[in-house]
Design a protein around this nucleic acid. Sequence first.
DNA 1: CGATTGAATCGTACGCCGTACGAGTCAGAG
DNA 2: CTCTGACTCGTACGGCGTACGATTCAATCG
Lengths: 231, 231
Amino acid sequence: MAAKRSGAQSKRSQRTAASPRSVQEASREPPLSLERIVATAVELLDAEGVDGLKMRRLADRLGSGAMSLYWHVGNKEEVFDLALDSVLEYRAPPQIVESQDWRGEVVHMLEDWRASMLRHPWSASLLPRRALGPNILGRLELLSKTLSRAGVADADLNVAIWSLWNYVIGATTTRASFDLSDDDRAAAQQRLTRLNERYPTIERTRLLLDNDWDGAFRKGLDFLLDGLAPR
Amino acid sequence: MAAKRSGAQSKRSQRTAASPRSVQEASREPPLSLERIVATAVELLDAEGVDGLKMRRLADRLGSGAMSLYWHVGNKEEVFDLALDSVLEYRAPPQIVESQDWRGEVVHMLEDWRASMLRHPWSASLLPRRALGPNILGRLELLSKTLSRAGVADADLNVAIWSLWNYVIGATTTRASFDLSDDDRAAAQQRLTRLNERYPTIERTRLLLDNDWDGAFRKGLDFLLDGLAPR
DNA sequence: CGATTGAATCGTACGCCGTACGAGTCAGAG
DNA sequence: CTCTGACTCGTACGGCGTACGATTCAATCG
């Protein structure tokens, strides 16, 4: 049995350091590796979107044959999982010991989360359907720890975390998919105006035209936090 | 030019009423129609999930050739759009004139929304990426109207609506994709326990094992509404 | 040193997908 | 009877994910 690669453990990559560059002096491409594959997949996803990621195209960008990828990953789904988690790394800001400003920390992390996903819009549509990678779990852990230290009872903790998670997921997926061109938005508005008698209220408040996504995210988040932990 | 079908206008289906059953007395299958296609697509999606909907398979169920569908719909994406919106119809409960209980109405509509989507789990993953059909717009309009009558200022209305929308989207997509078997859940928990030193807090509160989705949804929604419109 | 091994690469091929195209069917109108 | 237009469908094409087996090559061992 060939065994292939087993799980998430990495045992590759102590080669470049030791080998004398091999016989082929100028083989331009560095060797394939999980890291390169994931990084290139992210590039490709950024450039072409979810539907643009094809194994053949990914291999082209890597300068390799399509089937070579399957030595490093089990299948295409795994590429999605790895690309998603790789984009969600979070380094908490440096802070002198235990900050008192738990609310600021939560807002900062969630806004960073949202920003990361909007930098890679494909990630928003992927997140809800995928396995929880280490970076995602790390964010949940941080959130949990912060809220817990802020005095939220364990009994309410899960509800609080899921509420915030829901909010972030919803806001980013919506934002990512409603990022229409101005033309599209105008068309949508026209359609809505034509149906004015059916949807008078959302037409009046210009729900579909409202462009201040960042502000709305922040305001809504504040409301939610108010509800979760009244000051 | 063949013109095909133009938009959403329906001009079909005044045939069954008038025709004398045709020559072929026992052509078992009723004729193709948008309604039948959408209804069958929903069945198929329920049975096989998003990836299980193939044009050929859909045609099989309808007893027609695969290409016949393309007379009624433009492409596969349109089938998704129509199936999604068809599943989100909402009939507001009968109520004597203007109810005072705006909060109850909102909660009822949103819980119904969530229930509808969980009855058809594929719909949750589709919703954020799709066009707004009439049923979805109808729900937004109802939400908007109710909150407005409850006294929410127009300036805050959009934020309130999007916050609730985000919450529902996030909760349903998460719930639909985390609906693991007990085995899966146990495996996830094991993995988490093995990494206990990395994620102690979410391990302690059993975040991934918490099974009370309905209760969490309701509680989180209450928190959010508290924040949006303090009683 | 040559033989062996196992990690890594890749060419070919298979089955399935969405759907373009154009030929067929058939009811009703002229 | 002919014509027309709504509707159906068989065939075919290009592209997809990936199974499979051959191939390459550096490291290892007798």
